[in-house]
């Protein structure tokens, strides 16, 4: 079962690696979306410094959401999802492996791009470490919650637009606590409480969302 679990992750990573620029679209979107903000609100560095944590997190959230459609759709369309479901791995663990692979493909590049963009937005240096920790704790939660939305819309024609409506309200707590942590560090209010809640959210999502996603996938494969 362990081999199957890591095999599935490895397969998704290889597919992404061979997908070329296609798998980097998420992080490119992230960079472009963030760089639109100075154009929209003006280049005053004080203003950008103030809104930097929020802008980075909102864009990371949107970038993650845009990439959710790929989590199950391609495998569903070419039939490999059914074969995976017939395999030795319980569907709950399949979801977990898929979400983990999704995080490695999208969340990790976002984490690498985020500090560079934070410099561009003139974010104050006290926030950098906490920004990275909040992304490390927050983006896997986004992938896990997103797996529910992706599984619910698998095989639907209008799935892409629908998924944003389903998933974004559920992302609200992650956004609030992550930005709260970064701003807490910047303004000297302390970041520990927010980071602990983010970690708790990650554990809860790790324990609960695979069941919901697997139930949705079972329905789609019927």
């Amino acid at each position: 079962m362990v081999t199957a679990f890591f095999g599935l992750i490895g397969r998704d990573l290889r597919l992404a690696a061979r997908g070329g620029i296609g798998s980097l679209v998420t992080v490119v979107f992230f960079v472009i979306a963030v760089s639109l903000f100075p154009l929209g609100v003006g280049p005053e560095s004080a203003l950008l410094e103030r809104i930097a944590p929020g802008v980075l997190w909102v864009c990371a959230l949107l970038a993650t959401m845009l990439s959710l459609g790929r989590m199950f759709d391609e495998d569903f369309e070419d039939g490999s999802l059914e074969i995976i479901a017939l395999g030795p791995l319980p569907l709950e663990l399949v979801v977990l492996a898929k979400a983990l692979a999704h995080w490695l493909i999208t969340g990790l590049p976002l984490m690498i791009a985020a500090p560079v963009l934070a410099v561009l937005l003139n974010m104050s240096t006290e926030g950098f470490a906490v920004l990275m920790i909040s992304l490390l704790l927050g983006t896997p939660t986004l992938s896990l919650i997103g797996s529910v939305g992706a599984a619910l819309t698998v095989g639907l024609r209008r799935g892409g637009v629908l998924i944003s409506l389903l998933v974004l309200p559920l992302y609200v707590p992650v956004l609030i606590f992550a930005v709260g942590a970064v701003e807490g560090a910047i303004f000297g209010l302390g970041e520990q409480a927010n980071l602990l809640i983010l970690a708790g959210g990650l554990l809860a999502a790790l324990a609960l969302t695979p069941w919901a996603s697997a139930a949705a996938l079972r329905m789609a494969l019927e």
Partner: peptide, 27 residues
């Protein structure tokens, strides 16, 4: 199928509503 899919969503949402409420209060 629509009923079952949205049932899953409603249950996930029901777990999330107290968390959302709490986080918004906190925010």
């Amino acid at each position: 199928k629509g009923a079952r899919a949205s049932a899953i969503l409603a249950l996930v949402g029901a777990v999330n509503i107290p968390i959302i409420k709490f986080s918004v209060d906190w925010w």
